[in-house]
Amino acid sequence: MARKSLKDLSGIANTIARSGAKPVERSARISAPALGALQGSLAAIREIDPELIDDWGPIDRLTEFTTVNTDEDAESFDALKQSIRDGGQQVPILVRRSKTEGRYEAIYGRRRLRACRELGVKVRANIQDLDDTTALLAKGLENAARRNLSFYEKARFAEAIRAAGYDAATVRQVLNLSKSGHSHLTKVTDGVPTEVGDQIGSAPKSGRPKWTALADAFGAKRLTSASALKVLQNNLAVGSDERVELLLKEASRRGAKQGGPAQQVVPIAGVSVKASRAAVTLTAKKSGASAAFAAWLEDNLEDIIIRSHAEFEKMNTQDDS
Rank of each mutant, 00 (worst) to 15 (best):
E142S: 15
F157A: 07
V188S: 00
T189H: 00
T189F: 00
A160I: 05
S180D: 12
T170D: 11
T186Y: 02
V188L: 01
Y166Q: 05
E142D: 09
Y166G: 01
D190L: 06
E142K: 11
F157K: 04
L136T: 05
T134A: 15
L149P: 02
E153H: 03
V174I: 13
E153C: 07
E159V: 06
H182P: 00
N176Q: 14
L175S: 06
N143H: 06
R147Y: 13
G140L: 04
R162I: 13
S178D: 09
E159D: 12
A160S: 14
F151S: 03
L175E: 07
R147G: 11
A158V: 02
I161M: 08
N176E: 14
S180Y: 12
V171M: 02
A169Y: 07
A135Y: 02
G181E: 05
G165C: 08
V188I: 08
E159P: 02
A163R: 14
K139W: 03
T170M: 13
V174S: 10
A160P: 05
H184G: 05
H182N: 13
A169D: 15
A169R: 10
A138M: 09
R162F: 09
G181V: 01
P193A: 12
G181R: 06
S183K: 13
T134C: 08
E142Q: 15
L185F: 01
K154L: 06
A158E: 01
Q173W: 05
Y166P: 01
V192T: 03
S180L: 11
R146C: 09
R162M: 12
V174A: 10
N143D: 09
E142N: 11
A135G: 14
N143A: 06
I161L: 08
A138S: 10
E159A: 15
A163G: 08
T186V: 10
D167K: 03
R172S: 08
L137G: 05
A155F: 10
A163T: 13
G181F: 02
E142A: 15
D167M: 09
A164T: 10
T133Q: 08
G181W: 03
V192Y: 00
T189Q: 01
A144M: 04
N148C: 04
A164L: 11
K139H: 03
Y152Q: 04
R162P: 02
E153A: 12
A160G: 11
T134V: 15
A163V: 08
L136A: 01
K139D: 09
T133P: 00
S150C: 09
N148F: 07
D167S: 07
Y166F: 15
A163N: 12
K187Y: 04
S183L: 10
Q173N: 09
K139L: 12
L141K: 02
G165N: 07
G165F: 10
G191N: 00
A164S: 14
V174E: 04
A164M: 08
S150W: 06
A135R: 03
F157E: 01
K179R: 13
K139C: 08
H182M: 14
V174T: 13
P193I: 06
H182K: 07
N176M: 09
A168L: 13
R162D: 04
R147M: 08
L136H: 01
V171H: 00
Y152G: 02
K187R: 14
T133K: 11
R147W: 12
V192C: 04
A164Q: 11
V188R: 03
A145S: 06
P193C: 02
